[in-house]
Amino acid sequence: MSTFTVTKPVLGIETSCDETGVALLRWEPGQPGRGLLAHTLYSQIKLHAEYGGVVPELASRDHVRKLLPLVREAMAEAGLTPQDLGGVAYTAGPGLVGALLVGAAAARAMAWALGVPAIGIHHMEGHLLAPLLENDPPSPPFVALLVSGGHSMLVEVKAIGEYRILGDTLDDAAGEAFDKTAKLMGLPYPGGPALALLAEQGRPGAFRFSRPMTDRPGLDFSFSGLKTQVLLAWRQSDQSEQTRADIARAFEDAVVDTLLIKCRRSLDVSGARQLVIAGGVGANKRLRAALSDAAAKDGFRVYFPRLEFCTDNGAMIALAGAIRLAGGQQQDETVQVFPRWDLQTLQSVSETADIGDG
């Protein structure tokens, strides 16, 4: 098996759901952007809008159509050829099995043809490492809040690859609750961003919903009951545009308050003073503002990836792959994906990966 050459770029491929992401990154520990050379992204939002949600078979087929053109685009942007690559990283899970297989098969084929190593990356590890692409990145230990359409969890990060889940969602994830709530109020797909935009016109306090599972100990989440409260309030209202905005504001406030309460608890439980926010819901303006205010009041630091790296992207996969390859981790040529994959089962990264800022 070929050995990864640290000075050569890593190609990152993300195809876990409805976005095709490709990036090129040269491993540069301690440098802003960690050596990000290029990244391209294609979203399937228009493709799935007609159906009000992601259709797995259509998603897989669109990844097949878009992946290689995006690879060529990223290569051209970076001024590289395939022969310049030192390794290939791809999302191996969790996600839609067909979509994952598209990226895995392409990555393995390219790596085999070029004689370079390939490595499968956990999608959520990519998200929690995304803030390391910024100019002032965190260093472990820290707590990560991973909030997206499919996940809401709090993770204690003792080292890269050494993770302990402190809290997880028992039903709907925060992003999923945003999307479903928007749909029941007649907002267009994708519902989460549309609801957040509408909430900006809402009047604070016009409606109030519960902050689920904050009245008891623990760090798990549950948003399905909140969604039901919104449904009842909407059905019993006059359903005017202002009322729609007021309900959207009350829902968003409830989710943000719930996440904030749980984040504060997780820092107390872990003893960490750094909090990383990752995943699509991490782009929410009100959540960012609330957590920044709390950090200033409570004396902890909060880190956000830039907005383009909150949602699924190839840069986070290239970074996670570069870290693991630089740490000496490689895998055989088997094309294997994991629609479900426990983050806590990942192998820790050798200290030789040099992930710090020094």
Rank of each mutant, 00 (worst) to 15 (best):
S139I: 11
H151A: 05
A113H: 02
N135H: 07
A118M: 08
P138A: 06
R108H: 14
H151P: 00
V147R: 03
L133Y: 02
P138L: 11
I121P: 03
W112H: 09
G149M: 04
H151W: 06
N135P: 05
P140M: 12
P117F: 09
P137A: 07
V102A: 03
G149T: 07
H122F: 14
I121M: 04
V147P: 02
F142T: 01
P131D: 11
A106D: 11
L146S: 00
D136S: 14
I119S: 02
V147K: 02
A105W: 02
L145P: 00
L114D: 08
H151E: 05
W112I: 04
L145Q: 02
L129M: 12
A107L: 14
A107G: 12
P140Q: 08
E134C: 05
V147I: 15
I119R: 09
L132W: 11
V143Q: 02
M110W: 14
R108P: 09
A130M: 10
A109E: 12
M110P: 07
G126D: 13
V102Q: 05
H123P: 08
V116W: 00
M124A: 06
G115Q: 10
G103R: 12
G103S: 11
M124E: 09
H151V: 03
L145Y: 04
A104W: 06
D136I: 14
G150M: 12
A107Q: 13
P141G: 11
A105E: 11
A118E: 08
F142A: 04
H122I: 09
L146A: 04
L145E: 01
A106L: 07
A118I: 13
A113G: 08
L132A: 06
P141Q: 12
I121H: 01
V147A: 15
F142V: 03
W112T: 05
A106Q: 15
A107M: 15
L132Y: 07
L128S: 00
G149Q: 04
H127F: 10
N135K: 10
A104G: 09
L133A: 09
A113D: 02
L114C: 11
H123Q: 04
N135F: 00
P131K: 09
L128K: 03
I119Y: 14
W112M: 03
H127T: 12
A113W: 03
H122Q: 07
A144R: 10
H123G: 02
P140L: 04
H151G: 00
A104R: 12
P137Y: 11
A104P: 13
P138I: 10
L129E: 03
A107N: 12
L128N: 00
L128D: 00
A104V: 14
A107P: 13
W112F: 10
L146R: 00
A111N: 10
L132I: 09
F142S: 02
H151N: 06
L146W: 01
L133H: 06
V116D: 02
V116L: 03
H122T: 10
P141E: 06
A105Q: 14
M110F: 13
